[in-house]
Every structure is written in structure tokens, then in C-alpha cells.
Simulated scan of single mutants.
Amino acid sequence: MHRTVCLLMGLLAWSTPSPAKCLYAPAEALASFKEFPRGLLDANARGGMGLDFQIRMLAGADNATREALRLLAPQANAMQKAAIGLGLAEASLTCGAQSAIVARKIESLVRASGDDDIARAYARSQAYLKPETVDAPTPEANGPDARSIGLDKDVTLVMPDPMAPLPLPGAKTR
């Protein structure tokens, strides 16, 4: 009886995914990042989609990798911080569907970084990527409305007709 219970507990533990990870990251990529984290920023000096994809993959990998990301954040430039915030938001939303624990860890990583640029990019990306805000955008999701920044009425942007003919150089306009 005791042996059967131990066997069942072992099988249950083996088949249950680790609450520390939710996304697959190749072992080589994890080893390379853990060996030289700064290489990620050096290889993606302008931030961009490549960096946010790698951040998403690494943030969903494990706790040690998330800690290395937190320590790397202060070394990033503004474009890299925007990509880091986006990658963390993507990881949090993806992982949240599988493990609320990992999603909370990623969110606490953003707070622990103490970086306003990363936190701002994370919050904006969260608002933009959440399914309920994509279908029905709200003023909060798209930025502040006119009243919240001190204007009395909403300001509308009037764009010129893109199909109107361009004036000739030197011609008088009406």
C-alpha cells in the first residue's frame, strides 16, 4: 500500500508542469542567456520585435531567468526598455492563461525592476494586448481623454483630404 501511494505521488509530481515556467525556451538559449545576460542587449541594441520575443520566451522559462532579466533591466536603453516591457506583458498574458502564479511573478518582476520606462511599457502593452480592450477600446486603453489632462472639451484632430491636389510651388493659396 505504501509503495502504491508513493508511486502515485511520484507520477502526479512528474506529470504536473512546474509552476515556475509556462513557456518553452530552448536549453541553449537559456544557457547562453544565463552565462552572459548582457549579450541579449548587445545583440538587440535597437530593441524591437526580436528582443521582445526573446524577453517573452525567457520570462516564461523559470525563476532564475526572470531574476537575471530584472538585474539586466537597468543596463537597457530606452528602446530596449520598451521591448522589455512589451515582452514581459506578452509573457504575463500568455502565462496567465496557464499559471496565475507565473503571471504574478512576472508582474512582481516589473515592480521589482524599479524602472518607470519598463513599467510604463508593460502597462500600455497589457492594456493593448488584453482581448477585452482590443475589441472595445476605452479611453484608458488608448491614453488619457481631454478632460483628464485639463482641457474643457474633447479635441478632435482634423486631417486634410489626402486626395486633394497639392499646390504648385510658388502658387498662392486661398
Rank of each mutant, 00 (worst) to 15 (best):
A146I: 01
A83Y: 03
M163V: 05
V102K: 04
L58C: 10
I101H: 06
S113E: 01
L51I: 00
R104W: 05
P26S: 06
I101Q: 14
S99L: 04
D115P: 01
A171Q: 15
L93F: 06
P144F: 04
S99I: 03
A141Q: 09
R104C: 05
L129Y: 13
I84N: 01
M163R: 14
T133H: 09
L11M: 13
P19A: 11
G47S: 06
L7R: 15
A31P: 05
R147T: 05
Q98D: 06
A68D: 14
Y24N: 07
M9T: 07
R66S: 09
K21F: 07
R38M: 15
S108W: 08
R104K: 09
A123T: 03
E90N: 06
L23K: 03
Q54V: 01
K153Y: 11
A121R: 00
A127D: 08
I101V: 13
D115E: 01
A121L: 00
Y122D: 00
R46Y: 09
K172H: 10
A91R: 04
E35I: 02
D115T: 01
N142V: 01
P26G: 07
D115M: 00
N77P: 12
L41T: 02
M159P: 02
W14C: 10
R56H: 05
F36Q: 15
F53V: 07
R56W: 02
A97P: 03
V102H: 04
L41W: 07
A68G: 04
C95H: 06
D52A: 09
L58A: 10
N142D: 07
G48C: 04
N63E: 14
A82C: 00
P162K: 14
E107S: 08
A13W: 14
T173M: 14
L58W: 07
D161P: 12
E90D: 09
Q126P: 01
A78V: 04
P169S: 13
P144N: 06
L30A: 06
T138H: 14
D115A: 00
S113F: 01
Y24G: 10
V134E: 12
